[in-house]
Design a protein around this nucleic acid. Structure first.
Lengths: 218, 218
DNA sequence: TGTACATCAGTGAACGCGCGTTCACTGATGTAC
DNA sequence: TGTACATCAGTGAACGCGCGTTCACTGATGTAC
């Protein structure tokens, strides 16, 4: 998870010039940190500016108002989510068996999603906060694919491998998204008492049960 | 949905006595209204007191502080969720065919959950808000069963009817909860653009796909 | 049945907090000539 | 190459807001005798 963010902390001994040079990025980065620490509640303009070492007013040179800054943090959060899914995908290299690969990648997509939510609940909450502004672009991973794109691709591969019926393709997208999303929130919330091992077991059994249900009967 | 709450509005012409008589309940009821209108954000002590027509300080005679009031509203929200599920269950009376009944009731439980979230997103959000205090009792429906109880019962019936393997019973509980929870939040959030018909179709296809996956293969 | 008095359930002013945003401003930068 | 000046990117004080909570208080209630 530590690889998900590039933190560029300013040299404290250095004299701070009047012009920051990259204030917009610095504000978003500080917003990400606040979101990680305290979720949407903690993502407030004045504290963001304080972290960067700049007056609160300076933020208005780069964002029309607070919601615009939050949108930018949200995009970063979606990017981090996509990268978490990519990381999990990288852990299952192609075996040559298309059927087995498609199956493994579907699991990787789900685990990457849930693991990100558990590792970064604050960012996850910001990404899926209630008020989302119109036409906010979604963040993407290193391949330019959004979390949703990664899921759709995995489902396409399942169809191509003959594991998922084309008739179920559309419903499977919503259902898969729903189950990883719901599982994430339950594990963060009502099921947060679980030990790490129990939690991992719940993730595996839940995704496995759902995955088996997806398969074409033979 | 209007039947889920008994609203006892005070007679505006009546002289208000110094002692309210049932202030605790009135505060919770006003809290429920605020939650319905604006979710957790809108659930603030001063406005609750204002609604009831009482000083903000008066609330401290009945609740140690705001979080205690929020807990009470949360219990009410869970009760309303349970009643929504019961309402849907009442719509599928026993046909005599245990297999068919078990199947129908499972669907009713899921639809009741999702429909409540869509009808009362504010209350739903309060029920599943992040900070839940220790050992907060969960609200129940008219039969004294919590939402979770209703789901567990439906799953037991599926096993009894031979539709669900006992081996999958435990995993099915988490998976079913996760999928209705995730579906609810996606429909409220990222998929909120859907028309009512499209929304209903998504609910049906998602729950159907999941349900079919649950079944014992034959 | 009447009355002193403890207890209960309210009031209203006040405190301190942190927030988003505005305003008039100023220091730094870069470009035209 | 040097200089006027527009523009850009910051500053800091101030405003108004609504919040949760505290404090000393007071009106109403009920119980013991």
């Amino acid at each position: 998870v530590s690889t998900l963010f590039v933190v560029t902390s300013p040299d404290p001994g250095k004299h701070q010039p009047y012009h920051h040079g990259d204030l917009r990025n610095a504000l978003v980065q500080a917003g990400v940190e606040l979101a990680r620490e305290g979720g949407p509640e903690a993502l407030v303009l004045r504290e963001v500016a304080r972290r960067v070492g700049v007056s609160a007013t300076a933020a208005y040179r780069h964002f029309s108002a607070l919601p615009a800054l939050i949108d930018a943090v949200s995009v970063a959060a979606f990017g981090a989510l996509a990268r978490s899914m990519e990381t999990e995908l990288d852990r299952c290299p192609p075996t040559g068996d298309a059927t087995q690969d498609a199956w493994a990648q579907m699991g990787a997509v789900g685990r990457g999603y849930v693991h990100f939510a558990l590792a970064e609940p604050g960012l996850f909450a910001v990404a899926f906060r209630d008020e989302t502004s119109d036409a906010e672009p979604t963040g993407t991973g290193t391949q330019g694919l959004s979390p949703r794109d990664l899921l759709e691709r995995a489902l396409d591969n399942l169809v191509a491998a003959g594991l998922l019926s084309p008739d179920d393709r559309v419903a499977a997208a919503t259902a898969a998204w729903a189950i990883v999303h719901g599982l994430s929130l339950l594990l963060i919330g009502k099921l947060s008492d679980l030990s790490p091992q129990a939690r991992e077991a719940v993730i595996d059994s839940t995704l496995d049960l759902f995955g088996r249900g997806l398969l074409i009967r033979n």
